[in-house]
Design a protein around this nucleic acid. Structure first.
Lengths: 333, 333
DNA sequence: TTGTAAGCGTTATCAT
DNA sequence: ATGATAACGCTTACAA
């Protein structure tokens, strides 16, 4: 098994290997019932499996897609991977999953490896580094779609959340309930990451629109492992009455802190998290979240990529695809 | 980019392609400083990337591993995938992730596709179907490692939790606190799945050892979407004072039910879940879990697979690798 | 309707 | 120290 080739089948069926190849590719048009049967029997008997590597070399298509996530620890990444696996599988593709761990260097290595392995396309959550590389790929018309982030200088199709709206939905929700001292916490990374930047910008904008004062003290961007101490400072300092957790990781830290201090949500602190989390609905109290429509995002991205691969994609169309967040109103604010 | 081959490099550097190949494979031994420089420059200039598909065809190694999970919805699967990606990446392999969705048919298609794509090895959470296929692979000495499940008739290395111990740890913990009416709920699938069977068996055994009566009414195996109604019946029926959720999906349903009914944990109901969940530590109350050492399991599995691939694996050694669960004692019982 | 032969981009063997 | 040449297993004109 695996060892046996089209030649063995040809011999077994006493036909030429090109005939077998025809058979394999379902080109029965000019094939006699008899040969067809012989070949089928030979394949069955030898338990033949075509070598797709050889086929790929010839056809210049591997039917595999590279997926590079910025950081696999986010539930969003995982969710997207699951959905991509499903959609691409339906389209006859396998996916190679790579994790950049927020490091541009690892991202670059992954991209180069994927290209070397001749994947038919790449879906990436770009770290923000490697713009040059993506530029080269774009210029050579290599199929790429970005998810979650975009690179402003490149018209690569990017499928992402309307982050400004996400933040403002949260702020508006808070304000409606009477919260006045609203803070936002996001985890920082070296690179300027689209969702972080946009969520921060949206937050400021929304506060402004609501006529609330904006101070830098209400806006914190720190590494995940510093989130707790940051909240601690925040609580001592400006005493916010509501906090927006900019993603699922931050939300966890926030909830840990709340429990550690015995705070009551929403009485002592209003909480909203961006990114839906599995426990939100049965938490005490249920946590309100701003959900990214990950399913739609993954579907859109895979659809565009498949179109690019089959040259069906109109590159003159818009390159940014925004999806509206969904507010899951629960009882945490 | 991608379009240019070793021939182009050879021409650019005015050497033969075999020399370039030597260079690419770091066989500098008999190579003059000069040619080395020329080739390096040409590669740089042309931005050459070797075609690994062609290399794979020749070398019969793709440096990629197929990973087939039974069902990607479990946090355990996701956790394992993340760890495998990391370990294999360190060893120079990429992973192709496939989801069988608990369907043997899909599993079979995935295996066949992976074999056709000439992966160097497979890590699988076998659904329980396709024993024949695995048998063939095993007999042809194809590198495979199972995670989470085993197939009794096949000596394929299998890395999994000591499920008996996991159940008994839970039962013992419950008993120690005075619980008497202990039930277990697992989600059923058609096939006889190792962890389910073993956790159920371990549960019965532990009850026996504790001198508690065993009735089939305390043991429920139903599809996830029927878990809630099953608990409902259970509560009306035998009124358990403690429930062991056999995995993370069941735990979620259980917690949903508890919240819906306004039950108090642990006063009204003791709860332990097998599988660690992200929210366990800051839930109200913190949920006790029996954690699978996913990191160790993934490491062990990848290590064995890599050994098999490089013929370093002693197949006469044991084929079942058990890992001890870890009880995270929190306040839910 | 089926077979021959070239070619995909490498690596590997063997000359030179 | 470097180059010709034959594989690797398949597809695809083109011949027959």
């Amino acid at each position: 098994m695996g060892r046996i080739t089209i030649n063995d089948v040809a011999k077994e069926a006493s036909v030429s290997k090109s005939t077998v190849s025809q058979f394999l590719n379902n080109r029965y048009e000019y094939m006699s019932e008899e040969t067809r049967g012989k070949i089928a029997k030979a394949i069955e008997k030898l338990n033949y499996q075509p070598n797709i590597v050889a086929r790929s070399l010839k056809q210049k298509s591997t039917k595999t897609i590279g997926v590079i996530v910025a950081n696999i620890v986010h539930t969003f990444s995982t969710h997207i991977i699951n959905q991509l696996e499903m959609h691409f599988h339906e389209q006859g593709f396998n996916i190679m999953v790579c994790n950049a761990g927020d490091e541009p260097k690892r991202e670059r290595e992954h991209i180069e490896m994927l290209i070397a392995k001749q994947v038919d396309g790449i879906i990436a959550f770009p770290t923000g580094g490697n713009i040059d590389l993506y530029k080269r790929l774009y210029e050579s018309r290599f199929p790429i779609v970005f998810i979650d982030r975009k690179i402003d200088s490149l018209p690569i199709p990017s499928v992402l959340l309307d982050n400004l709206l996400a933040s403002s939905m949260a702020v508006d929700a808070f304000v409606k309930k009477g919260y006045k001292q609203i803070a936002i916490i996001t985890n920082s990374i070296d690179q300027p990451i689209t969702p972080r930047i946009e969520r921060l910008a949206g937050f400021k904008e929304a506060l402004e629109k609501q006529g609330l004062p904006i101070t830098e003290q209400h806006i914190k961007a720190v590494p995940v492992d510093e989130v707790q101490e940051t909240i601690e400072m925040l609580m001592k300092d400006i005493k916010p009455d509501a906090i927006l957790a900019a993603n699922d990781r931050v939300l966890i830290e926030l909830l840990r802190y709340v429990r550690k201090k015995g705070l009551k949500i929403p009485q002592d602190l209003g909480v909203i998290g961006i990114d839906e989390v599995p426990y939100a609905s049965f938490f005490e109290p249920p946590i309100s979240t701003i959900e990214q429509p990950a399913d739609q995002i993954a579907l859109q991205a895979s659809t565009i990529l498949v179109k690019q691969i089959s040259n069906q994609y109109e590159s003159n169309s818009q390159s940014i695809y925004r999806f509206d967040p969904l507010l899951n109103e629960r009882q945490s604010y």
